[in-house]
Design a protein around this nucleic acid. Structure first.
Length: 281
DNA sequence: CGGCAGGCGGTTA
DNA sequence: TAACCGCCTGCC
């Protein structure tokens, strides 16, 4: 290993499966290495994360190797290592006896990352009318072209996500080689609006940014503001709600009310278990 | 080539 | 308020 890396070992962690956390649609910048560890970018910090299981079902360790400025506290917070996911999934299982226990067991290594508000905003505007591999490609290309170089990890240079100041200055033609389609306009407008607002104004009016409707807003609230009661309904969740609970796939209102009643404060976590479960079927 | 997936914005009644 | 369609790219 090269010099200049910091390494943090978090002990006694259970409910932590990188493949579930980084590949369940909440983030787009993490990729799996041949050894089963995951490398990715959060904020302007580059890291490699590895789960180290211990014997016979005891809580294991999370091994984080960092290139950049992220502190131990930053990564503990970003990976959401403090909340008791066993307790939270237990509450969800007891509240809904039909499909939730199965979904919770299938995705018991899921945690909801505490991502940056701007990062979630940019990512989920790009996610509209789009699929995960293409979203990942767009965000990588955007970062390579307009983001800050963060250093190399295992021979590959990585870049931070472009800041709103940079994107607000661009024309649509600057973004044409990223292949964002009509979303390029939303990104530029949102970036310039972002700069004129306080943090309170931004979080109070997420849905007023161009390119953000109810679904994208819910994603930004859940993943960028860690509002655990937000319940994003994408096509997969709508299909699941139809298949297992008999909702009409267009009845988003009914689904929201159901989620609020059954899952309450933990609806967002419930959504992640359900999303992970239905995608695996 | 056509069909389709994906979520928002705008228009219509 | 709901119903509908266009937007853009990539994959089948």
């Amino acid at each position: 290993m090269a010099e200049g890396y910091d390494r943090y070992i978090f002990r006694e962690v259970d409910h932590f499966a990188p493949a579930q956390i980084f590949d369940c649609g909440q983030c787009f910048r993490w990729t799996e290495e041949a050894d089963g560890s995951w490398t990715g970018v959060a904020g302007n910090c580059l890291a490699n994360v590895k789960a180290v299981p211990s014997s016979s079902g005891r809580p294991g360790k999370v091994d984080v190797t960092v290139e950049g400025s992220g502190t131990e506290m930053f990564w503990r917070n970003y990976l959401d290592l403090d909340p008791d996911y066993g307790e939270m999934s237990g509450i969800l299982m007891r509240g809904e006896p039909e499909i939730m226990p199965v979904a919770c067991r299938a995705g018991q290594g899921i945690r909801i990352l505490r991502q940056d508000f701007w990062e979630a905003t940019l990512d989920f505007i790009i996610s509209q009318n789009n699929n995960i591999p293409r979203i990942r490609g767009c965000i990588e290309k955007l970062s390579e072209k307009f983001g800050k170089p963060l250093g190399e990890f295992r021979g590959e240079e990585r870049y931070g996500l472009p800041c709103p100041e940079t994107l607000a200055e661009l024309n649509r033609s600057d973004l044409s080689d990223i292949h964002l389609g009509y979303r390029d306009e939303y990104i530029i407008k949102t970036a310039s609006m972002w700069l004129d607002m306080t943090e309170e104004e931004r979080s109070a009016s997420v849905i007023d940014f161009p390119g953000i409707g109810p679904k994208v807003e819910s994603c930004i609230r859940l993943f960028g503001l860690h509002e655990m009661d937000a319940f994003p309904i994408d096509v997969w969740v709508a299909r699941l709600m139809n298949r297992f609970y008999g909702f009409d796939e267009k009845d988003k209102k009914g689904m929201k009310a159901f989620a609020e009643e059954k899952f309450g404060d933990l609806a967002g976590l419930a959504q992640q278990y359900l999303f992970y479960f239905i995608r695996g079927l």
